[in-house]
Design a protein around this nucleic acid. Sequence first.
RNA 1: GGCCCUAUCGUCUAGUGGCCUAGGACACGAGGUUUUCAGCCUUGUAACCUGGGUUCGAAUCCCAGUGGGGUCACCA
Length: 435
Amino acid sequence: MKVRTRFAPSPTGFLHIGSLRTALYAYALAKHSGGDFILRIEDTDQKREVEGSEEALQKTLKKFGLEWDEFYKQSERLPLYRNAAEKLVKNGNAFYCQCKPKNSKEEGFSSSLRDPCRDKGLTSGAVKLKVPEDKIVSYTDFVHKKEISWNTSTVYDATLLKTDGFPTYHLAVAVDDTDMNISHILRGHDWLPSTPIHLLVFEYLGGKRPEIGHLTDILSAETGKKLSKRRDSVFAEQFVDDGYLPEALLNFVMLLGWAPKDNRELYTLSEFVENFDIKGFQEANPRFLTDKLDWFNGQYIRKLSDESLNSKFEKQNAKFAELSEGKQLEITKLVKDRLKKISDISIIAKFFWEEPNIDKDLFGKNYKEHLQKAKEAIEKNIPLDQVPKDNNFKVGDFFMDLRIAVTGMKFTPPINESIIILGKEETIARIKKVL
RNA sequence: GGCCCUAUCGUCUAGUGGCCUAGGACACGAGGUUUUCAGCCUUGUAACCUGGGUUCGAAUCCCAGUGGGGUCACCA
């Protein structure tokens, strides 16, 4: 069976890391079966719409390789929703309401589930769902692999069509997923509580209801709560800007909420699609810890060719880009094994284009002697390895002092090679400064 | 508070009744390689929320409790 899935973001901002994961899973679910992945923009709330975010969303999806086969915008499909709403009213499954919109945040939890307009027989206004009393609605969640059910007495008369003629999510999702022949709805866990509404709407509208699955929430490592844009970095682009490779971020995120039987961890997008198994979804909420992300990023950095890593450095750091091509590539080779993030180049290689500020406390106690001999060796072109042998220095201590004098840091590329790139003059000048 | 989801090392997880004295990965510790660090190799510490059942046998099934999360808009 060919699976058809959709990713349905609202154009209210940049792509959230959780949304990226949802999109990835929906993509893999469809593509694993040779089916289609659909992008649907849910722009039914004009007030919240953010200029340019639709384009930004598309750009980011493409950056991660998640290409869609079909594209829709809900604002271009308004008549469909109106017709559906009218049909529901006609069939007695919905009613018009003229109450002023409420806001649960202001009113607390006590408000009644039943709307005062449900039996007034109004002929205009917003359209709301006429929820039946004491009926069980249920479905089998394909993420949780179990049946989930509600008594409709706990479900409120949700608004389906707003007075501005736009549908709410509850109506739009049922209309569109039926109309677009979606076979599997994959969405965030936050939708689970409103699923009984959708179940009812699907039932009243008729037609085949898609399978439904609710993904876990990604929890903040710090707070243990759902990731929030206020407190946490949550946007995919933020991570890319911060020096993470899209491939690494994607690989990291794919294992937050899904796992294969064999515990394999490294997957390219196409490998993931190939190995994807709908049974692999996780039921408990994972925490977003960057330790593992850093590890993935290191893995992917090391897989890059020197040339492509080099060009990433050029884009990342202007000073690096000013270096000669030959020097750039030499530096790239030296630091490749030492990076967690692309942006680390600005720290680890800074001493190549900027004279370091030396914190003398970093030096060992014999540093003057070490540096004096190092300077002499460099001047006379004697290999530096020879110096500790000739002078009975501790190898590690000697090179550490030299490293600090030249770079200002304890963690740097290999020091001999670095000195060659830096040049004899400059190296000696830096050593003299601290002697 | 109502409704819903959930519970294996610090973290991500494997595990679907006996193969589990619970496996892998990250992180952390130790050792090795090495010119420090990193990387790489070897290795160590570390977990089945609690209480009841079911069963010859339970991390695995059931129930309760507790903990965690979500949600309760003319937002998605």
